[in-house]
């Protein structure tokens, strides 16, 4: 039986178990902290920064920051909502995201965050980058135009599939997802059933021939905003359903 302690989250008392992050404790308490790179089954990565909260006034990513007794955490404030919305907008303008013809629409966590934050148009100019696509694999399609660099595939391939199919190459604005082969995904040991493909929050890694099995309009986030399951007291589940 692990020890428990209390801390404050937006004025409410939250009970955490030792070793838990702020996000994990908040999830159990039914409080949603918006996130993108965090995934329940994977080690926290802290890249998207959307889950940034103020801990005793200092900004921290709640997916990596351990809960501690007595800390005062600010989450759903006007200022932080604006920061998170800005980050989502940055991700939209950094890549080439066209929801209207993306087969992930309705299941895409970036799109869902945009809806949850009431994002109509990004305040930043679109960058229209040129990004590589890879359709070499018989069962998987890679469209880097939609990559948000969350590293979920990198982590899932290592942690869940026990392979090393994905890793980042380059740095800064030139950073991109690379595969464990000279160039083509088809030359790696990836499999159509790998978890690394499931966990992609956007339409960067897609299973071929599955795109519209659930019609647009009947998908998860078509029905309810992202985070509703946590707020309803249910832990987050994998999204591809």
């Amino acid at each position: 039986m692990s020890e428990t302690f209390d801390f404050t989250l937006d004025g409410a008392t939250v009970t955490a178990q030792s070793g838990e992050t702020i996000m994990q404790a908040a999830d159990r308490a039914g409080i949603y902290i918006p996130r993108l790179c965090a995934h329940k089954e994977l080690h926290p990565f802290g890249a998207c920064r959307i889950c940034t909260v103020l801990v005793n006034g200092r900004p921290q990513s709640s997916c990596t920051q351990p809960a501690a007794p007595g800390i005062v955490v600010e989450n759903d404030t006007e200022a932080l909502r604006n920061v998170r919305k800005s980050l989502v907008e940055m991700l939209f303008v950094e890549g080439n995201h066209y929801c209207m013809f993306c087969e992930k629409s309705g299941l895409c966590e970036l799109q869902a965050l945009g809806y949850r934050f009431g994002l109509l148009a990004p305040r930043y100019p679109y960058q229209f980058p040129k990004r590589e696509m890879d359709a070499s694999h018989p069962d998987i399609f890679v469209d880097r135009n939609r990559c948000v660099q969350c590293a979920r595939c990198v982590r899932a391939s290592r942690e869940l599939d026990h392979k090393t199919v994905f890793e980042f190459s380059g740095r800064g604005a030139h950073k991109a997802i690379a595969v464990n082969a000279d160039a083509r995904l088809a030359d790696t040991d990836v499999n159509g059933t790998d978890r690394a493909i499931d966990v992609c929050p956007v339409g960067c890694l897609l299973r071929k021939r599955y795109g519209f099995r659930t019609p647009i309009g009947q998908r998860k986030y078509d029905h309810q905003p992202i985070g509703s399951d946590i707020e309803a007291g249910h832990p987050p589940a994998a999204v591809n359903g």
Binding site: R49, I50, L87, L91, G172, A173, K175
Partner: peptide
């Protein structure tokens, strides 16, 4: 900074480019 950002996190990877532009 645009040249030297490692690109790990969103605000540094994108924000600096937008500031520079």
């Amino acid at each position: 900074f645009v040249e030297e950002s490692c690109g790990y996190c969103t605000p540094c990877r994108v924000g600096n480019v937008l500031l520079r532009n």
